[in-house]
Design a protein around this nucleic acid. Structure first.
Lengths: 254, 254
DNA sequence: CCATCTTTGTGCACGCGTTCACAAAGACAT
DNA sequence: ATGTCTTTGTGAACGCGTGCACAAAGATGG
């Protein structure tokens, strides 16, 4: 019953591993920087350092795209920029709608990284009638009633959800029904979508919680092996004068 | 030469796999929702569905924390909330500073998900003198000159960078020098940090590019096997009338 | 107290991703 | 033309993460 895939199909696209696809934008950014500095060629070692990855991994990643390097020399920067852009589909124009123009939605609308890579903000949509017509990032906000029409008229296939958690699933359903097949979700909710629709999630709170986990572990280890370095973790522990159990009103059965 | 780890140490904390740690916040969110609805117990199957994961995976994840379930019954919701919170270090107070109060920084400051889980915005910091004193989300913005003092006074060990790309590395260096050991980076740059400092990256542009890749693949497959469903991808292709090569001025050697 | 039924916890196998290490390929100098 | 030197591309090994499938554990009813 409604066993819609909640996560990416990960069907191993053509032969390019998902992990590699996730790194291509990283390489592309590093290459673009080199291109702007008019650097003609770059070795796997240099580029890997710039992208923050292992050079062997980078070479293997590129090998999935084809043999675009020259042995003894390296990779032609401009050519590689083009090849990766094409592989990622950035040589075409992707109209995008952003739904939910609160603080985050506005930030996204103003984010320069979108337009720079083939993405075009086709419309900003919000459920609040008071927002309608108000320009954000130079684009007038449209009411949610227009959602279906906007998507059809602009041929939008990528939607960004920046609504409160409660509104996310209904908005998602409407987007999908109107023809959107890729969704970037900023709302802290698990979205359920039919097969064939990709969902990627960006969750600020989760990232912080992961950091807290490692931070706690570091603090614990430091306390165990005293005097590693009186930096900040210890002070942090001081000011947050609160035992590991704190004041959480948890029911502890057994 | 400055071979600082750019990525997470991933030293396999105590025995809890990194992949499991990344899912714990997901489980915690689902459990919190159940708790608010006063649901006393939940089975791995139900909870897995709510969190959008496989039930076997969930059980294995929990097995790393200990045997907190009761066979034939399931898991006690309140107890599990407490255990996961403790494991993630959320039972203590984590003061956080946000550097760079532009659109994104303001959105983060207003984000409710922070305060709800032990995170407390200790300060907002911006390099623009005009911003100083101006309240954002009820907190007055402080000038970047105060950065070191703020971090020391509040025992901050987690910093959020929401500056433009160019400012990110210098800000990062100052944060680390002042004692911050965990950084959440929203700037589109690879940060270089010394060992022992964790960096997590959230990159809006990269997420969109990954979506574009899959979107392009879907469009290609659909074109190959005609008439799968006249939803939107085809329309998207129509309006974006532009060949796969587009107008990119790339130099094509060889 | 015993039988049955539900649900956990986990051993095992498989596949993906990462890394090493090296042969092949080409540039460059002589 | 030949040798040397640099750097790519990749075969192979390894380790982690995932999912299956089932035995053990406990609740529940008679």
């Amino acid at each position: 019953m409604a066993t819609g895939r909640t996560h990416r199909p990960a069907t191993r696209s053509r032969g390019i591993p998902e992990a590699t696809v996730a790194r291509l934008p990283l390489y592309l950014r590093a290459l673009t920087a080199l291109s702007e500095r008019s650097v003609p060629t770059v070795s796997s070692e240099e580029l890997a350092a710039a992208a923050g990855v292992n050079s062997a991994k980078l070479r293997k990643d590129f090998s999935y795209l084809g043999s675009y390097g020259t042995r003894g020399v390296g990779y032609d920067v401009e050519y590689l920029v083009y090849q990766i852009s094409r592989e990622l589909g950035l040589t075409q124009d992707w109209p995008v709608v952003i739904v939910g123009i609160g603080n985050l939605g506005a930030a996204l609308a103003n984010y320069g990284g979108f337009a720079s890579r083939g993405f075009r903000v086709a419309a900003l949509i919000d459920a609040d009638p008071a927002m309608a017509g108000k320009p954000v990032a130079g684009i007038p906000v449209q009411h949610a009633d227009e959602l279906e029409k906007i998507i059809e008229d602009n041929g939008v296939s990528i939607g960004v959800i920046a609504t409160p958690a409660g509104a996310a699933q209904p908005v998602c359903d409407r987007l999908v029904a109107a023809g959107v097949t890729s969704i970037l979700n900023f709302a802290p909710t698990v979205l359920t979508v039919p097969d064939g629709v990709d969902v990627r999630k960006v969750d600020l709170s989760i990232e912080l919680q992961i950091l807290a986990f490692h931070e706690q572990r570091k603090a614990g280890e430091e306390r165990a092996a005293e005097g590693t370095g009186p930096t900040a973790a210890t002070r942090g522990k001081e000011s947050a004068k609160q035992g590991p159990d704190g004041d959480v009103p948890a029911v502890m059965p057994a």
